[in-house]
Structure formats: structure tokens, C-alpha cells
Design a protein around this nucleic acid. Sequence first.
DNA 1: GCGAGCG
DNA 2: CGCTCGCAACGCACG
DNA 3: CGTGCG
Length: 505
Amino acid sequence: MKHKLEVYEQKRRFDETPEPRGRTARRSARPREGEGSFVIQRHDARRLHYDFRLELDGTLKSWAIPKGPSLDPTVKRLAVHVEDHRLEYGSFEGRIPEGSYGAGTVAIWDHGVWRPEGGLRGAREGYAQGKLKFTLEGERLHGGWTLVRSPMHDGKQESWLLIKQRDDEAVPEDEFHVVSDERAASNASNASKVSKVSKASKKRARASNEAEVAGVRITHPERVIDAQSGLRKIDLVEYFEAISAWLLPHVQGRPVALARAPKGVGGELFFQKHAKALQIPHATQHAGLDPGHAPLLTLESTEALVGAAQMDTIELHTWNALAASIEKPDRIVFDLDPDPSLPWERMLEAAQLTRELLDALGLRAWCKTSGGRGLHLVVPLTRHAGWEEAKDFARAVASHMAATLPERFSAKMGAQNRKGRIFVDYLRNNRGASTAAAYAPRARPGLGVSVPVDWDELHTLTSGDQWNVANVRERLEALRTDPWSGYEKARQRITAAMWKQLGGK
DNA sequence: GCGAGCG
DNA sequence: CGCTCGCAACGCACG
DNA sequence: CGTGCG
Ligand SMILES: [Mn+2]
Ligand SMILES: [Mn+2]
């Protein structure tokens, strides 16, 4: 106990604060035998909370309650056990200056008498054992209360819960809105009826708030994730399910980066490459590929795609290597990013020109819309080179384009460098970098989709996002041949001759 | 969307 | 309990 | 060099 007070005094510099210095003398008008004083101070500090203090054995046992007490017996309020305070502190109100521990303002929110069940002995035992039952007689709070130590107390501070007991002083607020009609109809305050109604309404709410697709529980299926198209979460989920046969060949075996948007397009978007446990339902984990991190992920099945969608994955980006040969990329990607002011025709020409350079080098490339503003050129490779060589080679190609056609291409990122031109983004060929996969949606208004195209149809393309989650099905149904035929069979490598043509390393 | 950390 | 916070990561452009 | 962007 003495120790606790010392800790407190160390945290405070008494000469700088208006709080009372502890004195050993005096003690004001005492409550009756078996009772003690209590106080709740509203403490507007770095974080607003309520300090709940019970007098016991000459000191104030103290808890910080972030949300303050609730009169609803079904509500448990976290009460973090904090240092004992001196009795004198119970009457403190005022400002704790900046720079002092607990800086902010303190106001007495309630005070009065607490009467522990079992008297003084009950209080001591309850406090030691982590379960205090007591009655409060304050100005705001009355009736029975329970303060229990939560089984989960990790490390320094104990977590307790403050709960109102069910008595006449309790004010149930649970489901107030849902139940209020019922209550008005029959003015009987029938607790069991209320709880039945609330249970039923919760069940109903869950039923309409959940769906099941490919064995995966889908929460909030009706939530609109893109205002522009009006598409809902369930539409995205069903898109992934329907596109599965087309999409899986492009993601299976490859570590992914998921771009997730729990609040939909326009909300916060974050990437996720790693996950512990089965945080993404049905995803496959690959521990050890990325040292110092949780396992990398691959998506191998329809269930995994749907699982990702349940977790609000919109974009699916893949590495340029398989998990099984993580140090040997099996392709390089050129991401053609146009200055937004350029006419689309320049974009098509750029793709064709890039293709011609690659062709001259002896490399076949395949093209897809990005689902956004541009196009992606994908060059499959046998798994012969390391990341360093693949990246250097991609940079050499981009630099060559920029050097030969500087009015059209830039190999430097940054809006400045791209002005009036197309940035050949070769940076997606670094280890750990990734590019939106074929048939993956993009987290942009309209939910564009990256779609593989045949070179023969290049001239018919109208934009990088001409296909989207809503209309790509039409495209696929109309297809007579695989636009990427030959891709799987390609066996090509980066050779010394290519380097020579590009002007050496 | 969800687990971890924290008050 | 209930809130808030991560959830990639790194070369490159710019100052 | 540090900082911020993509
Ligand atoms: Mn406090
Ligand atoms: Mn792009």
C-alpha cells in the first residue's frame, strides 16, 4: 500500500499542482460503521475517463472507467485498476497543469457512501479476491453494484468490470429503440418479454445481414461498396465466385497482396500481404517466405476467393513468382501509366510500341486492361533469373523506350516526368512487389476489372476500365478463343543478346 | 473486418 | 468492455 | 540528407 502511494507520488510533482499534499492527520466526518466514502471524478485528461474511488483501510482504492458507469445491468463497463489515492484526493476538483501526470481537468461527478456486502471484512476479502459487491448512496448513483476482476489481467494493470445489479435503481437501456414500441403498447415492464423481443429482433437482424456463398459466411451482403455502380458486397462476392474459373489460373500458387476496403470504394484502402491463422477464410499460408513476417498468402480455390471477398478484398495483386520458387520470378510486368490528359489512342500506340520492342528482343508479351487508366504488358519467363536481373532487365527496357521515344515515354515516376507521356512502370518487378491480377477488380468508382485481351483486338479497346464487375460477364460469354492463348506454353528467357541490344547492363 | 493493444 | 489502430514497403522523386 | 509519394 505504501508502495502504491509512492508510485503515485513519483508520477506527480506536488509543488506544481493544486492537488492536496497528503497529510497524516485528520479525517473528516466518517460514514457509519461498515461503510466508506466513495467518489467519482470526471477526469478530462488526454483521454476522458471517470475515476471511481472507494475508501478502504484509510486509502482510496481506485479504478479508471473510460466510459463511466452504466445504469443498465446488462452493460459491463471496463474499470482499469489504478494506484491507490489518498483520502484527501477525493475532494479534489480543478485543473492539473500541462506536463503533470494526468494533466487536464477534474470534476467531482458523484460522491457519497458505499456499503460493501459483508461489511469491512467483506470489502477486504472482495477486494483481494477480485469480486466486490456493494451499495452506493450518492447523488447520481444508487443501489447495488458489482465490481469484478476480469480473468484477463495481463501484466501491469488489472482489468475489472463495473456492473449495475438488477434492482429498482437499474435502468435497462438495452434495445431501447427496438423495444420501445412493444413497451408502449403494453405498459407492463416485463423484463422477460423485453428480452425475448430483443433476442428475436437480433436474430431477424442477423438473418437479413448474412448470406452464405461457397460455404463462406458473408456478413453485410447488402452493403453498397461502390456508390457509382451501386454494387453491393454480395455482388462482389458473387463476382469472385463466378469469375473463379478465369481468375484462379492467374493467382494460384502466387503470393498475393489483398487491397481491402471494409468501408467500400472511397473509404480507407489498405494492403495485406501477410496473415496469421486463418484470418482470410480458406486462404493458404506460406510461412518462412518472408522472414520476420507472418506467413504470406495464396488463394487456391473458389472458397478462398470468396473468403477474401468476405474480408472486403476488392483488389487482388500477385507477385511475379510462385511461392514454390519464390526467388525465381516467372514473368515481368510493364505497367503503362498514362498522363490522364492523354487521348486513349496514345495509350494503344504505347502498348503496341512496347510490344514491338519486346518482339524485337525476342520476347512475346501479353496484354490486359488494368481496370484503371492504363494497360499491363506481361512477359512470361522460365524461372531462370533472380529478382535482381529481372528488375534490371525491366528497367533497361523501360529506359530504352524512354530514350528512343522521349516524346511518348518516361521511365521516371512522378507526375512531372509523365507530363504528356506514358510512364513505363517497371518497378513492379521488385521482389515483393505486385500487380493487379487478371480479372481482379479495382477499388475505384465503377469497379473496373483487369481483363486479358488479344493483340488483334487492341484497336477496339476504349479504356482501361471498359470492363467492370458488372459487365465483364458479357465479354467472357462472347469470347470464342482464349485472348491469352500461348501464354502458358511460352518458354522464354532473358539472354545476353537481349542485354546487348539494349546497350548492355 | 477483425485481432491486438490499451485505457 | 469498447475504442482505436494497423493491416505493404521501398525505390525514387523532390527539396 | 530526410520526407513523401505511388
Ligand atoms: Mn484519472
Ligand atoms: Mn497502372
